[in-house]
Write a protein that binds this DNA or RNA. Structure first.
Lengths: 216, 216, 216, 216
DNA sequence: CATGAATGAGTATTCATTCAT
DNA sequence: TATGAATGAATACTCATTCAT
């Protein structure tokens, strides 16, 4: 029991540090953020931070990984249970945008991960992103087979949609806009669907939307 | 005449410094790039760099502005002479992507401008970007009036397209892909047009493409 | 009985710590050796080390004292039973060299004791060394009285021999030589006892000195 | 001329820094000496020290090399002109001891060079030392050929004398004695040349050795 | 104008020591 | 007693900026 508590405490402290570090890195950028400040804000000693993360770099990278996991969970937890491909896609887009409505500052983390650790490793952002694109690609391939999506390269299409999402969040962030990102979801989905669906797909999409409305 | 030569020389040196600084900032990022190295690579003294740009920050910001001007010119110089709205749009998209095919490293500059100077000023990137979006928005409004674009919010649509472009270039960069960005133009345009055009617009687009093919 | 066992255990642990500390200090030097590592190698907690030695400095000094005691014992245990002054001396020299054949790394300890704790106290090395020199001096005085040693200052002579031994071990260590130190004993003893000159050489030396005196 | 002055100034400053660093390293030891203090004592900025010596380690090593050069010069400048082998040898011994009378603190440098940079390179001390021993060895070989030195291994003999010198200086330093080292020269030379025994002592020694051999 | 030597504020990291459990 | 998590003082090194020549 004691060791369980110990492990819990260790995990908890690790989490606290990561959370505060994320805040700081997001607010100040990698170079300007100081390990001292992470410790100071948590009212713990500098050395304690170093017990958990041996370098500033590893602290940052861990913070970036944690942030990406959060995004990943936010999306998968709502899309995984859904079977209807139209709804799955729309829900995914909304979840992506909503996540950044709640955590817009994390965009900084991703930007800095790339900016500061260019040569060092594939950004965790990309790792996760690629997973999602692959999933989306599979979905599109199935829809194409079912005649719901017109004859386009599903890999390129999946990437284009991902790029649009990524670009939308970035630009929104760059603008420092206060509006909610998720409000952009309907129009984005509208343009995307009009752009990729067959007439049959368009009908099926309307039917799907109708079913969903009924359920509520 | 002497002073004219002087002025030329000053402008030339300013340009040299900016060019080298751009290279370095793109390659190393703002924090890691050193003013010393800019000078060293140009075989001039550090103090000389400071004669032209009083701080590292201003040097960077000037480099970022210069980069954006390049992008802006690359786009406007080819789109401005075009009247046909379809062709104008397609050409703009291609020009945007082609610019980054030739200057992908500049993405780093834009990323760092945002990453390091968050609170200080509206990124020059955004300033230029907004100008283009406004132009595009006007174009869409005219097309809507002409019944070529369906009844969507042209501001949102213009932004979405800009976001897609921005996101595409970024992701391409993050991936470190060697392929040419401009090869993505046709599919992007295809999806965008299918997404925003009315049936009449689609017909007009085909006619426009045919005319262009004939000219060649 | 219990307390006796306790005391034994305490003494044992103290010894273990000292042994490991000696190894580490010898291998890394005082500044680079870490108390953490002493504990880690013994698989005990750092705090335990501090129960036995309240500071790193005291740990080091205790290690140095222990090392010197080892040298002292190694010499006295073989020389004390010997009466013949020649044999006593030769045996002592051999014992000194043999000790360092088996414990050459201890030289590091002595070096560091001096290097790091210059102002703090008379090095334990010197304390022990002086004892031996005094003994040796007494021996020489007796030999002089017996007409076995010529009319030289026995204190200086004793010191010179000690210096030679000390210097020999040090230099051997500095060289990182793998050869056995004790192999040097016979020649050292030979030179000490007889010097290096032939009778002719001795005469020539006197002549040389005379010439020089004249010149002045 | 300007560049000559420049070069002079650079060399001068390098020398100043090295001198002060030597003082500090000798007084505090490598680990305790602070680069900041070197700068502070010279009333220059820390960065300036780093312009001349890129790391503390290189500063120390340069100081050690410089110290050894000083010793080397002190010896060679007086022994090189001398032809008489006896005088050459005596003069060398005296020069060695006198050098440390004037620079006893340098012993610390040599001790620390060994203590701190054990694995990194052959101590400069040893490099120089070996040169001198080789010279001395050659001298002994010639004297042997001339019948002035008896039939002993001249390499071992040269090393023994070097060890004695080294040990003498070290021990003198360890003792913190205020007396002059060079006062020890005559007796050292006397013992080296003649040994310590009387003819009777030599006979007794042989008898002792014979007795011991018998016992075995 | 150009130079580059000098400056010194700023920071990541280490590790001896403490002390609550 | 033993533990090892937490502490925070201490320090090497960097680099933007200045300014005498």
């Amino acid at each position: 029991m004691v060791s369980a508590n110990q492990a819990d405490r260790v995990a908890l402290r690790r989490e606290e540090i990561l959370e505060e570090a994320t805040r700081l890195f997001a607010a100040e950028g990698y170079a300007r953020a100081k390990v001292d400040d992470v410790a100071a804000r948590l009212r713990i000693a500098k050395g304690t931070v170093y017990r958990y993360f041996p370098t500033k770099e590893q602290l940052f990278l861990a913070a970036a990984d944690r942030a990406m996991e959060g995004l990943q969970n936010a999306i998968l937890s709502v899309t995984d249970p859904i079977d209807d491909p139209f709804e799955k896609l729309k829900t995914g887009v909304k979840a992506y945008l909503s996540f950044f409505d709640a955590n817009l500052h994390l965009i900084e983390i991703f930007v800095h991960e790339r900016a500061e650790f260019r040569d060092r490793k594939k950004p965790s952002f990309l790792t996760y992103s690629d997973k999602n694109i692959t999933k989306f690609e599979t979905l599109l391939a199935e829809m194409k087979k079912a005649g719901l999506v017109r004859d386009i390269d599903e890999k390129l299409a999946a990437e284009t949609v991902a790029n649009t999402l990524y670009g939308t969040v970035h630009m929104h962030f760059l603008r420092g806009s206060r509006k909610r990102l998720s409000r952009l979801a309907p129009q984005m989905i509208d343009i995307i669907f009009r752009g990729i669906l067959t007439p049959a797909g368009t009908r099926a999409n309307k039917a799907s939307a109708a079913r969903k409305a009924e359920r509520k």
